[in-house]
Amino acid sequence: MLVVLAFIIIFHITSIALLFISTIDNAWWVGNNFYLDIWKNCRNTTTNTACSEIGDDNNSFQAIQTIQATMILSTILCCIGLLSFVLQLFRLKQGERFVFTAIIQMLSCLCVMIAASIYTAMHDEFHQKLGLGEGSFGYSFVLAWIAFAFTLINSIMYLILRKRK
């Protein structure tokens, strides 16, 4: 049982790391001379890199603010889930354990899914309004979808684990 608990803790910490990286790092959409995330748009020139924030001056970027909020909420919920897991491990009786943690992880999963889905649906519109050229989804976007899968699997593991001794 200790091996299973250690594996779940490592899996949960990995989920948190993936969420932090995908939320913070600047690589949701990348091209030859630019990179874009949910916070800023950076253009590379031969001498320097010029970055500008996204969404403050234009009402059409309300979807970006939704993506920002749901990614932050997902990261916070995942951290709270780890904390509640540790607290519930020693405090609750068998059968009652980890239900709250599973619900928190499921909410985290839902938030990251909403953010990545909105970005997937709206990325063409964002790029046209920002005047960006051809590019592809970056590793932060891919990590967001991987974090979605990890948080979903983690929430299911907590539900299964609640009955174990």
Results as ranks from 00 to 15, higher is better:
Asn59Met: 10
Leu159Arg: 05
Met71Glu: 12
Arg43Thr: 07
Thr66Tyr: 00
Val99Glu: 04
Gly138Leu: 00
Ala27Phe: 14
Leu130Ser: 10
Leu77Ser: 05
Val142Met: 11
Phe85Arg: 09
Ile146Glu: 00
Thr66Asn: 14
Val4Gly: 03
Asn33Asp: 14
Met1Ile: 11
Asp37Asn: 01
Tyr139Arg: 13
Cys42His: 03
Asp37Trp: 06
Leu143Asn: 05
Gln68Ile: 01
Ala147Asn: 01
Thr23Glu: 05
Glu53Asn: 03
Leu130Asn: 09
Arg162Gly: 14
Ile156Ser: 07
Ser140Met: 09
Ile146His: 01
Ser117Met: 00
Gln128Tyr: 07
Ser15Val: 06
Ala149Asn: 07
Phe126Glu: 15
Leu152Gln: 03
Leu89His: 13
Ile160Glu: 05
Arg162Thr: 13
Ile67Asn: 04
Leu130Trp: 05
Arg162Phe: 11
Lys163Asp: 13
Leu73Arg: 00
Arg164Lys: 14
Arg97Gly: 01
Phe98Lys: 08
Ile54Ala: 00
Ile64Phe: 06
Phe141Cys: 08
Tyr158Leu: 12
Trp28Arg: 03
Arg164Gln: 13
Tyr35Phe: 04
Met122Val: 08
Ser74Gln: 04
Met1Cys: 14
Ile146Pro: 03
Lys40Ala: 12
Gln88Thr: 03
Lys129Thr: 05
Ser15Gly: 15
Asn48Ile: 04
Thr46Ser: 07
Ile118Lys: 00
Tyr35Asp: 06
Glu53Cys: 03
Ile76Leu: 15
Trp29Tyr: 08
Asp25Ser: 13
Ala27Lys: 15
His12Asn: 10
Thr151Ser: 15
Leu87Cys: 11
Val142Tyr: 11
Thr47Gln: 12
Leu5Lys: 13
Asn32Leu: 01
Thr70Cys: 10
Arg43Val: 03
Val4Trp: 07
Glu134Leu: 04
Trp39Asn: 13
Asp37Phe: 02
Ile64Asp: 12
Val142Ile: 14
Ala121Val: 10
Met1Asp: 15
Phe148Met: 14
Phe61Pro: 10
Phe141Gln: 01
Thr49Leu: 03
Tyr139Ile: 15
